[in-house]
Amino acid sequence: MNWRTPRTGGLALLAAVILLLPLALVNNYWYEVAILIGINAIVCVGLNLLIGYAGQISLGHAGFFGLGAYGSAILSARYGWPPAAALAATTAGVALIALLVGRPILKLKGHYLAMATLGMGIIISIVIVTEDRLTGGPDGMSVPAFTLFGMSLAGERVWYWIIGGTLVGAVWFALNLIESPAGRALRALHGSEVGAQVSGIDATRAKVGVFVISAMFASVAGSMTAHYSGFITPGKVSFFHSIELVTMVVFGGMASTFGAVIGAAALTLLPQLLTVLKEYEMVVFGAVMVSTMIFFPRGLLPSLMLALARKRK
């Protein structure tokens, strides 16, 4: 087995980091930060398949995240479903919605696709805010704890392992997808859609497929967030959260699964570290973002790897 590929060595390294990280997590607050990183990373790994590999933009992924969160919340809190069943049903429901929405809008390209996904995200957000009988409206709603086989899963330390495990699974899935014929089809699409179609690739099918997968990633992460935090508000469904997710993918490095993970980690951790700067927080945050994009134009990880590779020669 070659340990130098992302699919083996990279995945093993990620698993090792997740296994060893608790040694550095001195209290539940740092567990919380690690969990938030994990949740964002799961969404970003999915979103990166769409943006980085298939070359399609989505400014509406917070909508899927929100559908997942509220789907789980409503089914388990209002209708008394077991959380595991609620999670599965919600994920299936979101996949269906993504399929129905994806078919028409993925025929659009560039700015038009951005607009369409943006509109979709905002519509979901409006529905969640206004259907206050079900969703609790702008003030949000409480969500019961996740139970599995009669055991209640609560607390940061339990959720750390659940999220960590899910992240490894998500990365493993993404890495394998990229190396599969479907993944090569996606990359061909990114290079040239016409070229790909001429080579016999069903462009719409491939695009819709990856759109649905990335929506499911977001939905599962949303469901888990809802159960983990026990309370959700429409803030997580907002347009700004969608932008945040895209930024993480671009910051970490497009078309790099581990880049997406690092982007999520950096942009989740940074505000927590910078908050001690008070009013200068946003200035420093902006400066870090701008300089990263200037000095690491391909995103954090790919640019670093490139620099290291050059140095070695």
């Binding site: 130098r4 670093l304 590779a309």
Partner: peptide, 9 residues
């Protein structure tokens, strides 16, 4: 992917 570089990072 360059493993040792990634690891160091």
């Amino acid at each position: 992917m360059n493993r040792s570089g990634f690891f160091r990072f």
